[in-house]
Amino acid sequence: MVRKHVLVTGQVQGVFYRDNCRRVAGEQGVAGWVRNLPDGRVEAVFEGEPPNVDRMLAWARRGPARAVVTSVDVSEEPVEGLSGFQIA
């Protein structure tokens, strides 16, 4: 298991980024959460098996169809054993 903390910059609010992130995380069996930040970025935590988290990171770099992702900052964190995926 791994845990990645993600900050996504670009046109990522108002484009259904969070809802799509939750759906894709469910498909990948990845736990965690996603939320909008006041500065326009999206913050997320992905926790799960490394290949599944890697697929989430690849998705985060693209986002949904209307998103324009300009950068994604990823840091590793200790696994907390989360279950489910929530929009925070």
Rank of each mutant, 00 (worst) to 15 (best):
P64A: 10
A44Y: 02
R61E: 14
G63W: 04
I87T: 09
Y17Q: 12
A58I: 11
A67S: 15
T70L: 11
R41T: 15
A44F: 03
L82K: 02
T9F: 10
E76H: 11
E47W: 05
V15W: 06
R35P: 04
R35K: 15
V2I: 15
V68M: 03
G84P: 13
R18L: 12
G40Y: 08
R3S: 12
E80S: 14
A25G: 15
G63A: 11
F16P: 01
Q11V: 15
I87F: 06
Y17L: 10
G63V: 06
C21G: 01
P51F: 12
F46D: 01
W59S: 10
Y17C: 10
S75L: 12
R55V: 12
S75Y: 04
Q11G: 02
G84S: 07
V53C: 02
E80D: 09
F46T: 05
R55M: 06
K4I: 03
S75T: 15
R22N: 00
G29N: 12
R22F: 01
E76P: 06
V24F: 15
V42P: 06
N36T: 00
V68K: 15
E49I: 07
E49R: 13
V45T: 05
G81K: 05
E43R: 07
S83M: 08
F85L: 09
R3Y: 10
E76F: 08
S75P: 02
D73G: 02
S71D: 15
L57K: 05
M1F: 02
E47K: 00
W33I: 04
A58D: 14
G32L: 07
R23L: 14
P38Y: 12
A65D: 13
R66T: 11
S83H: 13
V2L: 11
V24N: 04
V74R: 01
P64S: 09
P50F: 10
Q86M: 09
V79E: 04
E77C: 02
K4N: 00
K4D: 00
V30W: 04
